[in-house]
Design a protein around this nucleic acid. Structure first.
Lengths: 149, 149
DNA sequence: CACCGTGGTTTCAAATTGAAACCATGCGAG
DNA sequence: CTCGCATGGTTTCAATTTGAAACCACGGTG
């Protein structure tokens, strides 16, 4: 699972997280976890994937500290899978993915779920990247740089 | 490539884009494209992946309208691969991924590249999701809802 | 005790991946 | 013209991964 290494020795800041998530199934599991799913069976029913695959993905998410098992919530003798701090850190990424999907994968007028503010039910704003001075910046306004100083 | 369908008939707003990107290699290609790479050989050298795989991924990105080929920039008789509008729409996602990586995949003090403002070289801010009223909201402050009205 | 729900692991065929060899095309030099 | 070579792929084939289905374990419950 951890093989893809850019030809330059250490993996860059984008490749390293990608390697940790593993594959798209993992991200869908994380999304379901944000939606409150916790049990093996819940994930399996929601995603409709084979149990062995789900098992492997959960193992990988545990190994990378993205999820963790907690002993039980109700009395049942099973464990539950919940997001760690690191896992919850994926929220902006999921939002970015969802907003990209809204922009380019639905016909105008086609119904799709919205991410809304719990407080008042209004849709959230779009993610915007801002510079230190508050300007909204796009890809063409930025570059990557070594830490330098 | 387009097989993963959540057991409910139509793919949700997260799964559909995931399916389009295909796999992590595709996202790394897109990142390199943001960095200005355009030629088959440039991508191959940068990513160090097999040529057949790169070929397949580029085909997939073209098929999904994330990249397109343009006849040539310099005089060379080859084509170049550039991001479409849809492809450029992935910028926030890449930023989210990079920031997550910065947060959880580097030892404090470990050197890593920074995304900086071209204008003044200062690092960009963190992505923040805001509600209509401007409050910064996290996962626990939001929910998904059908379009309803 | 038999039986069921939950949460997995094992088995095995099919699909995908990836390294390496091969092919095609358009130059530029001799 | 022809040779060599750089670029941009495709083909081939072994190895890995995927995924469906069968199986297993274990704790209640009747």
């Amino acid at each position: 699972m951890a093989k893809r290494v850019s030809h330059r020795d250490s993996m860059c800041g984008v490749a390293r997280p990608l390697d940790a998530i593993g594959d798209w199934w993992s991200l869908l599991i994380v999304r379901d976890a944000f939606d409150g799913l916790r049990r093996f069976g819940e994930f399996q029913k929601s995603l409709g994937l084979a149990k062995n695959i789900l098992s492997a993905r959960l193992r990988n998410l545990l190994a990378h500290g993205i999820m963790e098992t907690v002993p039980a919530a109700d009395g049942s003798p099973y464990q539950e899978y919940v997001l760690t701090e690191k896992g919850r850190g994926l929220f902006p990424l999921l939002v970015a993915l969802r907003q990209w999907g809204e922009d380019f994968f639905f016909e105008p007028g086609e119904a799709h779920v919205l991410l809304v503010d719990r407080k008042n039910g209004l849709p959230v704003r779009r993610l915007e990247l801002r510079a230190q001075d508050g300007r909204v910046v796009g890809a063409e306004d930025t570059m990557v740089r070594l830490p330098s100083a």
